[in-house]
Design a protein around this nucleic acid. Structure first.
Lengths: 196, 196
DNA sequence: AGCATACGTTGACAAATGTCACAGATACTG
DNA sequence: CAGTATCTGTGACATTTGTCAACGTATGCT
């Protein structure tokens, strides 16, 4: 099983076409594979995010809790995407967010120290880092635009476009939380969509 | 006037307490001051964001246009904050966003090349870059959380908290666009708040 | 198998917000 | 200073979405 995780990670790295075999070996040597069961936490509010974490299989959510105790999903991460609190990770400050697994999942982790080592020793690693950060920003800004410009039904369609098939894997109330609507509203939207 | 801009910039840089006088001189030597009039564009959708831009006075908005032609404000930037499309800037791809001035404004710009030079030659400049990016992420995630967890009136209160006094400087329909509500709704919210 | 928990659906109703139309107010410009 | 464009406020009404309560189904655990 850890073999599968490393294989996924190596394939992920290779898709960027930035590194030699030797460099890839170095990166892999610092990578820590990990398995998490459904509902297991990767990060809790108040603690510091100390690992860059790539999802290899499964799915994670990042969420915050409001004054009334309700959870709100800031982000979802599936295989091939990183699941961090970028703010805590980059600044070393305690996180505002919880991250937990929505399914049994596997990840690869690089500690902040390992990551720093790679940034210093592998020239193109900066470029990888750059692309990860850019993607983070992109996702956030698209999400803000989605929230501003679409209402519930179109947000749901957009969700399906962005996360194809994910809506068959995770509970509907998680999707509702991501979209910012109540679960009842999402139920009604879905039955509306079937009628057409 | 350009003197004021440089002074603002130097003060901004000094607040980080990361650079020697000599380094600050180097940074300033690459910085380009600029004045913009109300409604003047800093970036248009389709073109590439080629400058890191610090607002020294005034205010800018970043916005996108939806399928119906409506503008939606992704971000607002006031003095002491950077106003970029981070995605276009970091990746070199054409931007999805427009950026224009909401007031007569002044900025300092560093071209991507200058910025790269500084990153390579001034050790602590990476740290500055890091803090800028972290702040970008933080703002976006807070905004998503705000959209998910609060309704219109509380979003407006939050707006006032985050941008004190700005609500007296920019048109109300801009704030409405930022909050994701109609201009009429915001009018009513404001008169409600006065009654109490 | 049986119980408990979690999840999804539905209806009735309430609350929040949007839309449209129009009227004032304000600010810019020649 | 008049005239125009821009911005804001208000009422009537429609639409969207939330809330509450109840029920049914699935799922997992012992």
């Amino acid at each position: 099983m850890p073999e599968d995780i490393f294989n996924f990670f190596e394939n992920y790295i290779r898709t960027y076409d930035l590194f030699s075999d030797r460099e890839i070996a170095t990166i892999k040597s610092l990578a820590i594979p990990k398995q998490l069961k459904k509902r297991q936490f990767l990060l809790r509010q108040g603690s510091v995010c100390r690992y860059h974490t790539l999802v290899c299989s499964g799915c994670f959510r990042s969420y915050r809790i409001d004054d009334e105790g309700c959870e709100h999903i800031i982000g979802l991460s599936t295989a091939g995407h990183w699941v961090n609190d970028p703010v805590s990770l980059l600044s070393g400050s305690p996180s505002n967010e919880f991250i937990d697994a929505l399914e049994d999942s596997t990840v690869i982790q690089l500690s902040t120290n390992s990551f720093k080592t790679l940034l210093e020793n592998i020239p193109n690693f900066k470029e990888l880092n750059n692309r990860i950060i850019t993607h983070d920003c992109d996702v956030c800004r698209d999400r803000i635009f989605m929230m501003l410009s679409l209402q519930a039904e179109d947000r749901y369609r957009e969700f399906i476009r962005i996360f194809p098939k994910l809506h068959e894997r995770i509970p509907i109330y998680m999707i509702a939380s991501y979209l910012g609507v109540s679960r009842e509203t999402l139920t009604r939207i879905r039955s509306n969509m079937l009628d057409l």
